[in-house]
């Protein structure tokens, strides 16, 4: 159940573009045509599907404080978390190279239309951001990390698909010259972000007195509640709302 919740949350509420603005550069640059946007979006989903769980494993077994305990008891106090940036970006760069080779072999036309943007995914903030958010939110299990990765990728894909479709249409609209291209895209993305904020009430039962969606809902809390035996659905929801309100204050 929490997998489904995390999945929906990372697509709609914590949308990589509309909530946290990750990956804006390629989002703005590639969204002129729907076909290239779809290609890039698919590549992002695929890369996130691979890199987020991989980085979770790295984080869990290598980088976290106390993670090295499996090597031997004397390594238990090592805290390698300062190496996270380098290790994450290294796995991402390698995986992107792999995706590039696969795409070139199986779909040369897609490879040509993506051009420079495929290697540019390596520095797409969304990919590194996905891994960093996974680390800072302390997602507890590999399954949840995978769900988070795929969900974030799909959210990004949704966003770039929508803006590409809109940009294709507004080419025939009467946009003021100084706003054409980049300016109007920013404003439209802002309006879409406002629209996506309406998803904030989706998973918490809705009535929170108009509170902003709380981004740091800890998945740990829900995990612990799963373990309590014999609690009814309503009290679980109350607990989630209660923990929301606590975190908000």
């Amino acid at each position: 159940m929490e997998h489904l919740e995390l999945f929906l949350k990372s697509i709609f509420i914590d949308n990589m573009i509309f909530a946290t603005f990750l990956g804006m550069c390629s989002y703005l640059a590639v969204s002129k045509k729907v076909t290239t946007a779809v290609g890039l979006g698919a590549a992002v989903i695929f890369v996130m599907l691979i890199t987020v769980p991989l980085n979770w494993l790295l984080d869990h077994y290598l980088l976290q404080p106390g993670a090295l305990a499996w090597l031997g008891a004397e390594y238990a106090e090592y805290d390698l978390s300062f190496l996270s940036f380098i290790m994450f970006i290294a796995t991402i760069a390698t995986m992107v190279q792999l995706v590039e080779i696969v795409v070139e072999k199986f779909s040369p036309s897609l490879y040509n239309s993506l051009g420079i943007f495929l290697p540019l995914i390596a520095v797409n903030c969304a990919i590194l951001g996905g891994s960093l958010f996974m680390q800072s939110r302390e997602i507890p299990t590999l399954g949840l990390a995978t769900v988070y990765g795929v969900g974030s990728g799909i959210g990004w894909f949704l966003a770039i698909l929508a803006i590409a479709a809109i940009r294709e249409k507004i080419r025939y609209s009467n946009v003021p010259p100084a706003l054409r291209g980049l300016g109007i895209t920013f404003i439209i993305t802002g309006l879409m972000a406002i629209g996506f904020m309406s998803f904030g009430g989706m998973l918490t039962g809705g009535d929170e007195g108009g509170k902003k969606p709380e981004k740091t809902i800890s998945v740990e809390k829900m995990d612990k509640q799963q373990n309590t035996i014999g609690e009814g659905e309503t009290s679980k929801k109350e607990k989630v709302i209660a923990s929301n309100i606590k975190v908000n204050e």
Binding site: F21, I187, G190, L191, I194
Partner: peptide, 8 residues
């Protein structure tokens, strides 16, 4: 203070 306004 919310993100969409930064875009606008």
């Amino acid at each position: 203070l919310l993100s969409p306004m930064a875009l606008i």
